[in-house]
């Protein structure tokens, strides 16, 4: 069988690539598009390190075929900072020391972005449950949650 030709919008830009039918979106992002910010921690949807946003929905890119991305809009960590400026979530992660090794960070940031897009004023419990699919083994989540709550507060200020 020939490799399907995929056209998609990644971080706002049109991209085209060929993908083996069994190739995951994660592998396509990393190997075909050199977007290595999305990480593979498990390959089974249990760690969230590969989190990206597809047509506005948070997904594990390891649990989606690249071929399914045809015509979709995919947002990855590489598109979070805009115009040379960090997104408030990125800035708050730095200020709160919400990362140690940094491997889970891209996935956590994309999940947190999806959270604040859907719910600008989450409670701590809502944030913890929303982010439960993003494993972090370094931080114990404390500073991660503080950073997300602080970023949410800042984003609400900006909107007002």
């Amino acid at each position: 069988m020939s490799k399907p030709h995929i056209s998609a919008i990644v971080n706002g830009d049109p991209v085209e690539f060929l993908a083996d039918p069994g190739m995951t979106l994660l592998d396509a992002l990393r190997d075909e598009l050199s977007l290595t910010g999305s990480k593979e921690g498990c390959g089974s949807g249990d760690c969230g390190a590969c989190s990206v946003i597809v047509d506005g929905r948070l997904v594990c890119s390891c649990l989606m075929l690249a071929a399914e991305a045809e015509g979709r809009r995919v947002d990855t960590i590489e598109g979070l900072a805009q115009g040379g400026r960090l997104h408030p979530l990125q800035q708050k992660f730095l200020e709160h020391a919400a990362l140690q090794c940094g491997f889970c960070t891209p996935g956590l940031l994309m999940a947190a972005k999806a959270l604040l897009d859907a719910n600008p004023d989450p409670t701590e419990t809502e944030a913890r449950y929303w982010l439960a699919g993003n494993l972090c083994r370094c931080t114990g989540y404390d500073k991660v949650i503080r950073a997300v709550m602080d970023a949410a507060a800042e984003l609400r200020q900006v909107k007002v």
């Binding site: 949807g45 989190s51 597809v54 929905r57 948070l58 997904v59 594990c60 699919g133 993003n134």
Partner: peptide
């Protein structure tokens, strides 16, 4: 069922 990410699919 699963995480927020899994709920997306």
């Amino acid at each position: 069922i699963g995480s927020t990410q899994v709920q997306g699919r």
